[in-house]
Design a binder for these strands. Structure first.
Lengths: 374, 374
DNA sequence: CTGAAAGCGCTTACAG
DNA sequence: CTGAAAGCGCTTACAG
């Protein structure tokens, strides 16, 4: 890059009056090197602005000092449709890598693409972190192939038995359970679930299972008419809410499988003149930065991205070092905000209070707090 | 990584019946290699799942095949506070790098940290892309130092004379001009600007300059009481809007220097019962994914992140190849949505229409569409 | 505790 | 068009 000759460990050796091998040892903190020598070498390196050539050291030591982050995604026309939740994860993973002295290579992979690209990626890094959304099953076989190649990989997602690789994820089941528990506490009885609940999206499916479990625990009947598929985007959330309204099934709450879905639903409700939380309580999942700033602020489930990133990186490093590792479920916690808090609702809700309350306490069988037109 | 010995170019050479040097040439598409040989080598490489060892090739060719993306940011306690606009940029830059056969290393740098870290970064990559926010002036000196070291770097930001490095940015001035022009068209006359307008934040400053220019062109007096400092976050936007209200200066529109600020302001207005756009029109800048989904949807300025990422990567590659490069200003375009469209406002606005309209047509001198309490 | 030497897997003049 | 050879800048046995 520079016209001047590159400064190498030989230059430092000469400057410090030691051999090149000693420079290498000293700089890597080899305990065999005596303190006095180490200091002299360090001073020389600093004086000459020397840093080790990664390519050479990695070539020699047969490691890359690099971790790769692969985003799996459904092909989207627009870059900006990346879930903001992953941005927080990205920040956390980057910082965690830096703490451990690793570089982070990042790469976006379309779900449909050839697995060979992933394998190529694997040679540039000591291991791979997978962060993805989109169809999970479509992904499983490629993970198997990668693992067969000896690639170290950890993935973010639902922690399930027989996973193709080490997985770190948050406790989606209990998250779902606590959201629905909270909505039930608020007096809601007809809680719609917006999100794909199939095995293709196991995280959503777990949240849905938690939801059903919470209903069951309270003796509230589940109604399949209240589950509408949606992927994690505002647009999809808006469509799902509209589809729900079109079905004509009565509901007094929406539990969206992600904040993006919830925010899309909020928009759909608002444009129909349906008040949140007065007419319908709404809750999401993820606690993306936006969640606290939409109107009304969104009740949601926080995933600790700082801890998640650290867990991903540390598990991968253990894998690389051939240490024992296990998949990990991280705790989450419910954050209650205005979108589900009937008590915290705006003043203008007062006038609706009486009849709404009456309806909410109606028996589960025919609880139609509002009858949306089809 | 694998227990099996690594497959090298020598294995491919043996398999294809050529020399190792020929394998290297063939795989790199050297035109000297005859087609038939090239094909045989390619087949051998595919058969053995061979990929070139980046460390070795980079060491030998004295390049890294890698670009580094440095996020400069004010130290934030929370990973999630990264501006979503940069996520879109990240996606775009990543894809652009992939297209050009480069890897992307990413790194977050706190603004206060030692510049030496950046320099170290520079040895892992052929060049650096800077994406940052926070105080610009604090950054200039370190850029100078980096450039002195011979580091190739391009930065995203305001394109100004005497920049310390090649800069790609969007046309902030005309963006600001078109927002304010639009708000004036809507009949607004007291337009508040929420955003730091000092030289510390040149992008905001340019937007503000465009704003002032638009006012001037229409003969509308600017009022410094209507400019409130804010950095690009919802929280800061909320505080700024509250500060504006506290000042007691009348205003009928808010031009926020970024969407995050706008969304924060929207929240502040909403919690005071101030209707948007009926009482106050609001516009932002960036068109983050959220902008179209807040309530009401936010009028804003779109920056073409796809093109921006491509321009950053291409400029940097030209710099690396010692080709001539110049800073570039990218066009932007106004997107009008409900937050500033008085006509498109919700039905309930009708009743306010008469008196609001009357106020809006009042002379510029005493136009108090609403008088916020202090 | 330190040095001399080999070699990681490539690319690239240099020959032919 | 292809091969033999040197060497990129390190790390790491192997000696001492």
């Amino acid at each position: 890059m520079r016209s001047k000759k590159r400064i190498t460990s030989f230059d430092i050796a000469e400057f410090a009056g030691v051999s090149q091998a000693t420079v290498s040892r000293a700089l890597r903190g080899n305990p065999q090197v005596c303190e006095e020598t180490r200091l002299r070498v360090a001073a020389a390196a600093a004086a000459l602005h020397y840093t080790v050539d990664k390519n050479a050291s990695n070539l020699r030591s047969k490691s890359t000092g690099t971790l790769a982050l692969l985003f799996f995604e459904d092909p989207t026309p627009d870059d900006s449709h990346i879930n903001p939740f992953f941005l927080a994860m990205l920040g956390s993973i980057t910082r965690s890598c830096a703490r451990h002295g690793y570089d982070l290579l990042i790469s976006f992979q379309e779900l449909g693409r050839d697995w060979h690209a992933d394998f190529a990626e694997s040679k540039k890094a000591d291991g791979i972190i997978l962060l993805g959304y989109g169809d999970y099953l479509a992904q499983t076989s490629r993970l198997e192939k990668l693992r067969t190649q000896g690639t170290r990989l950890v993935s973010w997602g639902a922690v399930l038995p027989n996973q193709p690789c080490i997985t770190i994820g948050c406790d989606n089941f209990h998250g779902g359970q606590s959201v629905t528990g909270h909505l039930l506490d608020q007096g809601c009885r007809r809680i719609a679930f917006l999100g794909d609940a199939s095995e293709h999206f196991p995280e959503f499916q777990e949240r849905y299972r938690g939801h059903l479990q919470a209903l069951h625990a309270r003796g509230v009947a589940a109604d399949t008419a209240l589950q509408v598929d949606a992927e994690s985007s505002q647009h999809s959330g808006k469509l799902a809410a509209e589809a729900l309204l079109a079905r004509g099934a009565a509901f007094d709450a929406i539990f969206a499988a992600s904040d993006l879905i919830a925010i899309g639903a909020l928009g759909a409700l608002s444009s129909r003149g349906i008040a949140v939380p007065e007419d319908v309580a709404v809750a999401g999942f993820d606690d993306i930065p936006m969640a606290g700033f939409v109107n009304p602020p969104l009740t949601t489930v926080v995933q600790d991205t700082g801890r998640a990133g650290e867990a991903l990186v540390e598990s991968l490093l253990r894998l690389i070092r051939n240490e024992p590792v296990a998949s990990t479920v991280l705790p989450m916690r419910l954050v209650v905000r205005g979108s589900s808090l009937w008590r915290g609702a705006a003043r203008k809700a007062r006038r609706r209070a009486a009849d709404t309350a009456a309806r909410r306490r109606a028996p589960d069988v025919t609880p139609s707090p509002r009858r949306p037109r089809a």
